[in-house]
C-alpha cells in the first residue's frame, strides 16, 4: 500500500533531531509538525519571519498579525522570535536551518528539483522555495512517486523549470524513501506492502537497489 499523507509526515518526522531548527513547506511537510517524536524539541521556522511557530490559535487567540508562511493564522510558542523577512532569509541562506522539508513536482538523479512552475498552466511563484533549497544542506523532498497516470516523478533529468540545481539529497515518496548520491537514486526503504519491482517500474531515473530494502513500519493508530 502506498503511504497516506499522514504516514509520509510520520516517516519524515523520524528524521527530526533534538535541537533542530526546521522549515516545513506547505502541504505534507506541514503535517510533520503533528508527529514530532516525544522527548525531542524542535523549533519550526516560518519564512515570513517567525522562529518557534506554535499551534493554531484558539478563537480567543486568533490574531490577523500572527500568520505563518502559508498565510494561516498561528501562534508563537514560548521561546519564539519574530523578525523581518530579510532576517528570516539570512538564517535560511546562511545555512542556519538544520532541516528543510518541501514538496515537489519532479526531482532528478542529479538532485535537481522542480516545484514551482508548469509552463503555460499554473503560475503561483516560487515563494521562498528557491532560497530554501539553495541555502540548506539538509533537505527532504516529499512527493508522490508517480503521477495519477503512472508517469514517474523521479527522473533522469527534470523536464519542468527548476527550483534549484543539485540541492536535493533525500526524497520521501508515497512508495519509498530514497537518497540521491553521485547521479543516482538509492532505494533505502519501501512503503509497507510495496514491492521493489513496483518502485523500479515507477522510477525513471537511475535507481540503485541494495540487496536488502527494509519495509517501513508504522504504529497502528
Amino acid at each position: 500500500m502506498a503511504l497516506t499523507r499522514e504516514q509520509m509526515a510520520q516517516r519524515v518526522a523520524r528524521e527530526l533531531q533534538d535541537g533542530f531548527y526546521v522549515n516545513l513547506g506547505i502541504g505534507i511537510p506541514t503535517l510533520v509538525a503533528n508527529y514530532i517524536p516525544d522527548g525531542i524539541d524542535v523549533m519550526l521556522q516560518s519564512e515570513n519571519g517567525l522562529l518557534g511557530m506554535g499551534r493554531y490559535p484558539s478563537e480567543d487567540e486568533l490574531d490577523p498579525d500572527m500568520i505563518n508562511a502559508g498565510k494561516e493564522t498561528v501562534t508563537a510558542r514560548p521561546g519564539a522570535a519574530i523578525f523581518s523577512s530579510a532576517e528570516s532569509f539570512a538564517m535560511i541562506r546562511g545555512g542556519h536551518v538544520d532541516l528543510t522539508v518541501l514538496g515537489a513536482f519532479e526531482v532528478d538523479q542529479q538532485g535537481n528539483i522542480a516545484s514551482w512552475m508548469i509552463p503555460g498552466k499554473l503560475i503561483k511563484g516560487m515563494g521562498g522555495a528557491m532560497d530554501l533549497v539553495a541555502g540548506a544542506d539538509n533537505i527532504i523532498c516529499t512527493m508522490t512517486h508517480a503521477s495519477k497516470h503512472g508517469e514517474s516523478k523521479l527522473l533522469e533529468k527534470c523536464a519542468l523549470p527548476l527550483t534549484g540545481a543539485g540541492c536535493i539529497n533525500r526524497v520521501l515518496t508515497d512508495l519509498a524513501y530514497l537518497e540521491i548520491k553521485d547521479g543516482a537514486f538509492i532505494l533505502k526503504e519501501r512503503a509497507p506492502g510495496v514491492s521493489v519491482e513496483e518502485i523500479v517500474e515507477k522510477t525513471a531515473g537511475k535507481l540503485i537497489v541494495p540487496d536488502h530494502v527494509p519495509e517501513m513500519t508504522f504504529d497502528a493508530e
Binding site: 523581518s84 528570516s88 532569509f89 528557491m130 532560497d131
Partner: peptide
C-alpha cells in the same frame, strides 16, 4: 525568490547596488 526580494529591498536601502546569491542559480 522571496529572500532575493527581501535582500533587493534591503540592499536598495543600504546603498548596495547588487549582491551575489546562490538562490536561483
Amino acid at each position: 525568490p522571496q529572500g532575493t526580494l527581501a535582500e533587493k529591498m534591503r540592499a536598495g536601502g543600504a546603498g548596495i547596488p547588487a549582491f551575489y546569491t546562490a538562490t536561483g542559480y
